[in-house]
């Protein structure tokens, strides 16, 4: 308390400040610190992302059992080397022209989409922005990588997780990663440019840049 008194002495001489102690001042500092930390780490991510349900609760595990060629049965390559991505209704209709099982979701799918010939507005967790050129052929056909490396074990999932969309950037949360601080544990936890670059660097793929001696821009950009 003695230090406080000295402060008071000085300030009493020179200022018209109210008397106050350093203790409460520090308390206020800590209070401010804690509040902002809670806001930044807990509240902010909740506000930043909107949560959206997929139109149909799709069961990857179930489908995976029924098809012959694994993921490529539905997510296939076209002849020109382009990748089809999320299946279109036309593919689903091959099996789901009529209701197959007893699932309510399937019924919804058939009635809402197949019958009305409406494409399902799937929300794509791995959707990259327009400036990105990602070649599935280079990774799957040339490098022989498996889907899990980037997409994780989504093939084993029985339902689709909630799609969290960044309200500002419009990206899926999976691009930045679930962790708001941007840390990742698995190769599939994050899909930012640095994650692509990291793997390319490790495997010495297209390290052609004059500027960075790393990946050339036009390898992944367009």
């Amino acid at each position: 308390m003695s230090t406080n008194e000295k402060v008071n002495e000085v300030s009493a001489e020179t200022t018209e400040q109210d008397d106050s102690a350093a203790g409460p001042i520090i308390l206020f500092f800590i209070f401010g610190l804690v509040v902002s930390l809670v806001i930044g780490w807990v509240v902010f991510p909740k506000i930043l992302y909107s949560r959206k349900q997929q139109p149909v609760a799709f069961n990857h595990a179930l489908h995976n059992e029924l098809v012959d060629e694994g993921c490529e049965s539905c997510h296939f390559f076209r002849e020109d080397g382009s990748y089809s991505g999320v299946p279109k209704l036309a593919q689903c209709i091959d099996c789901h022209e009529e209701i197959q099982g007893e699932s309510a979701e399937e019924q919804k799918f058939v009635e809402e989409y197949v019958a009305k010939e409406r494409e399902v507005p799937w929300l794509v967790y791995s959707r990259q922005p327009d400036c990105v050129f990602f070649s599935h052929a280079a990774h799957v056909k040339l490098a022989g990588m498996d889907c899990v490396t980037c997409h994780g074990p989504i093939g084993e999932s029985e339902s689709l997780k909630v799609y969290e969309e960044n309200r500002i950037s419009g990206y899926s949360r999976d691009i930045w990663g679930k962790n708001i601080a941007g840390f990742k544990r698995n190769t599939w936890d994050r899909m930012k440019m640095d994650d692509c670059a990291e793997c390319h660097r490790k495997n010495n793929v297209n390290q052609n840049s004059v500027q960075t001696h790393k990946g050339g821009c036009f390898v992944c950009h367009r």
Binding site: M193, D194, A197, Q211, T212, H213, K214
Partner: peptide, 10 residues
Amino acid sequence: PFSFEWIWDM
């Protein structure tokens, strides 16, 4: 050092 452009050169 963790940004993409960083390289350990002169």
